[in-house]
Write a protein that binds this DNA or RNA. Structure first.
Lengths: 194, 194
DNA sequence: AAAAAAACCGACCGATCATTCGGTTGGCCT
DNA sequence: AGGCCAACCGAATGATCGGTCGGTTTTTTT
């Protein structure tokens, strides 16, 4: 692995665990074995490094969901949505660092001054909401889903699933046993009980 | 207002807007007009100050919900739950700083080393979940709510409402128009469509 | 009014931070 | 072989950080 990629990988872990301000370039240097000068050779400053990390996070998340979308072309609407919900929870576990970064306040704070950062965040949210919405609309056509507004339902659904994923990472409560309840809630939300 | 309370008030705003590490004691000193020595006279260190702030956040949130609970003694189950959901969104707007603090990672990170911090967080979550659960159980008795597990439904419901509140504060999407959809989702979730 | 206690001040300290810079290395083109 | 450039190094720098301390003012107690 090139030194640049090693820096990016370690930065992802440090930023996700300790946050932007809690991550010291000296620590990153010690972990990767790269001199501080090397880090600043590849990234013009700490914020630029964070943006590159966020870009990688965006690309890997979008890539994972694109790939997942390929696998459920023949399912009906509600099965697609349920599949996405399950996949979202699964990803939040396997790509914990990446999800931690977009669950922290760091990127949203940076988005207020950095259009690039804001663009990355919007790409992620738009992608996720589009996927939910597409499943819902498919379901409305094939009769497996009955809601008023597909987009707004997608947002509520996303808020619910992401909220459960957060509960998991915060570890204030053990939300691992919530999977079944979440699926029931998801189904009720989309069908109105039928 | 005593200087100590002025420090606490300004600290709440700074911690919520800039985070724990992003808040400098010198800045807090400049804003409040209190010398740094005065701050450390009232709080033994930065972490202690944050814990006092979190304690105030806990007490004001718990107080608000206790007061709200008094106003809906005669309502049926689902009306209570819907009232709590609406009140939660309302509070997240009027007490934005307080909710921002518990939405940040700072307290959860501190909770890993500080039992006091963990206790505050657990108090808040337990209180909120208990309120949701109590409404659900009331609804199960009076027939307005039909779910399998009251506690788990309360968690899913909380994750959903809190997720919407976050969307509002992050301002990535305008979730202000989501109120009606959230209420529909809430009702579907609790009644299964009936 | 005297004494004790609490609140308050701000210069100061050592540590740590992001970033810079002058210099070395190693592969690639000619 | 020689020239070139990107990758790499790590000591040095100035700013900023949380926290201390000796002293003054204000409030409370006796």
């Amino acid at each position: 692995m090139s030194k640049r990629n090693a820096i990016l990988a370690s930065a992802t872990r440090l930023f996700s665990r300790n946050g932007f301000q809690g991550t010291a370039m000296a620590e990153l240097s010690a972990i990767t074995g790269a001199a501080t000068g090397t880090i600043f050779h590849h990234f013009k400053n700490k914020e630029d490094l964070f943006l590159q990390v966020l870009n990688d996070v965006k690309e890997s998340i979008l890539d994972q969901f694109d790939r997942h979308q390929q696998t459920c072309r023949d399912q009906n609407g509600i099965a697609r949505v349920e599949g996405v919900v399950a996949f979202y929870l699964h990803l939040a576990g396997t790509m914990e660092d990446q999800f931690l970064i977009i669950h922290r306040h760091d990127p949203y704070q940076m988005a207020e001054t950095s259009p690039v950062c804001r663009s990355h965040l919007e790409s992620i949210y738009t992608c996720l909401l589009d996927i939910f919405e597409e499943g819902i609309q498919t379901g409305m056509r094939d009769g497996s889903v009955a809601v008023d507004s597909p987009r707004q339902t997608a947002m509520v659904l996303f808020a619910m699933v992401d909220g459960i994923a957060r509960l998991n990472t915060y570890r204030v409560y053990d939300a691992g046993t919530l999977y079944d309840s979440l699926m029931v809630a998801c189904r009720r939300l989309l069908t109105g009980g039928r």
